[in-house]
């Protein structure tokens, strides 16, 4: 009798699942309400440089997802052993090692994309998303949650990248993923030259410039903030 009474009064320890509501929100929040590019203003530089074509943007997005996820995991596992004074050097060395792995991987398996991205793969090291998430999340949280936070922020970055690059490639070159869709050309399955519906489009040179990406990010922020009043800058 007494035993069962005790049992019922002891509060159950909060169950820490691998895939609870909290874990899911770590992935979904950065996609919209806490997006690294449009809300946190992290990782803007590379978003401008690699978004002229969809394919490099996609590969850049995947690389960043991998680097943010695993650097968060590593730093979060080491977080109690890193002295405060040299934490920046430790973090950067871990990030640089991961980026070097990604770079060598790309060089081996996708050489033309590696050449196209060139300096910008190296610049993932200084992509503020990676270091920003390490400082803001991984230094204070457990490895699994940090890993999910890294993946979520990487995905939030990647979808903006792919969206912008799709718009830029379509309007700037009349193509998607390297395949001509509109405009006078005959290098795809459909001969767009002969179809009056598709051949009238003239590619817009402005879209190829990096400035176009700034306009597009500005527009995405505008749309997002006019839908979500919470995000509007009051100052």
């Amino acid at each position: 009798m007494a035993e069962s009474a005790i049992k019922t009064t002891v509060p159950l320890a909060p169950k820490e699942g691998w895939w609870g509501r909290k874990e899911r929100s770590l992935i979904t929040d950065p996609l919209h309400m806490d997006n690294p590019i449009t809300v946190q203003v992290l990782g803007v530089c590379s978003a401008l440089a690699v978004t002229t074509l969809v394919k490099p943007a996609l590969i850049m997005g995947i690389s960043v997802v991998a680097v943010t996820g695993f650097s968060n995991l590593v730093i979060s596992s080491l977080r109690n052993g890193i002295p405060k004074q040299i934490r920046m050097i430790v973090q950067l060395v871990v990030i640089a090692a991961l980026v070097t792995i990604v770079e060598l991987f790309l060089k081996a398996f996708s050489y033309d994309v590696w050449k196209q991205l060139s300096v910008f793969i190296g610049l993932i090291i200084t992509n503020c998303i990676v270091m920003g998430r390490l400082e803001a999340y991984a230094m204070a949280n457990k490895p699994w949650k940090s890993f999910l936070d890294g993946i979520g922020n990487g995905l939030g970055y990647a979808w903006i990248l792919v969206a912008i690059s799709a718009i830029r490639e379509f309007f700037g070159r009349g193509a998607l993923m390297g395949y001509k869709i509109v405009g006078p050309s005959s290098d795809f399955l459909i001969n767009t030259k002969s179809s009056a519906l598709l051949s009238w489009y003239q590619p817009n040179g402005l879209m190829v410039l990096p400035a176009a990406a700034m306009f597009l990010i500005g527009t995405i922020i505008w749309i997002q903030r006019s839908r979500e009043a919470k995000l509007v800058d009051i100052s």
Binding site: T38, V41, G218, I221, W222, R225, S226, V232, D233, S235
Partner: peptide
């Protein structure tokens, strides 16, 4: 415009 203020502009 309010939604464009700050970062957007």
């Amino acid at each position: 415009p309010a939604a464009l203020r700050g970062l957007g502009i």
